[in-house]
Amino acid sequence: MLSRKTCETAARPDQWVLIARDSLLELPKKPGDGTFFTRLRNPSTGEGALFLFSSCAQQLFEIKVFNEDYHSWFIGQTVQHDGRLFFATPMDALFLILYYLIKAEKEQGKFQPVDQVIVDEEFPSSHILLQCTQAVQSLHHVTEEKEIGSKKFYKYNKEKTLKWLKKKVVQTVKALKTNNVCVGSAVQSSTFIRSRQILDVTEEDYTRYAHGLISEYIPEDLSADLLKYLELPELSKPVAQPPVKKRKLSDKPVEAKEDYTLFNSTDLNKKKPSNKMTAAQKSLAKVDKSGMKNISSFFSIKSVSKK
C-alpha cells in the first residue's frame, strides 16, 4: 500500500492549496522583478523557513500552514491527497532584520550600515530584506541612527525595540478583540465553554496571547524581556487569584496537553520555555509553527517523493 502511494505521488506534479494576499499577484513592471519563494532565517528559531517575496511590491510574505489530520482536497475533477491549507500573508520584514541587528550588536557592538549587518552566508537570499522599503525606513524603531556624510549607520537599541514591540502587542490585542478571538485557556472545544470564556477573559489574557503571537517573530531572550516589559507575571508562579486559578485548573487539562504536543511535535529542534506557551494560543497555533518546518520539505522534490 505504502509503496504504491509512493509511486503515485512521485509520478504526479506537486501541488498545494494556498490562500494568498491578492496584491501578491500584481504583475511586475520592470523586467527582472517577480515573485518567488525563498528560504530566510526565521527570527525566532534562527533556522530556515520559507517565505514569499514580491520584488515589485517590495513586500515579504510569511508562509504558514494549517494542517488537520486526515484531510484531502477535491479540486475540480481531481483529488489532492495533501489536505493542508497554506497562507501567504504580508510580513513586517523588520522582524527579520532585527535578528541581524541583535546579532551584530553582540558580535561587533558598533554603528554599521544596514547592508553590512544583513550578511548571511547560510541564507544568501537575505539581502532581499534590504529591498523591503517599508522595513528599512522603520529601522529607527529598533536602532540608534547616525548619519555621516550621506551614509546612515545603525546600532541595535533594546529599549526602543521593546517600546516598538509593545506597540505591536497593543495593536494585536485590539485585533484579537475586534475579531472575537477566544484567548482564554479553553478555546473552541465547545460552544458552552466558549460563551463562558468570554465572560472570564481578562485584559491580561489578551496581552499574554498577543505576546505569544509576537514571540513567534523574535529571539527567545527578547521575548522574555518583552514579557517583563509588559509587566506580565510569569505563568509558572501564578498569583493566587481564586477565580483565575479555578478556571486554569478546570480548563487547562482539556486543551493544554494537546496544545503542547502539537507545538513540540512540529517544531522539532526548538524547545520553548513553557511560560511563553499559553494554552490560549490554541486556535492560531494550528496555523502557526507547523508550517515553518513542514513547508520547506514539501517544496523540495526529494522529500515529497520519499514520503
Partner: peptide, 19 residues
C-alpha cells in the same frame, strides 16, 4: 478549525502592520 484558520490574515495584519 478550517473556519478559525481563516482568521489568520486579520490577526497577522495586526502583528505585521507598521506601528
Amino acid at each position: 478549525c478550517a473556519v478559525m484558520s481563516l482568521m489568520w490574515p486579520k490577526i497577522s495584519k495586526a502583528i505585521h502592520q507598521p506601528v
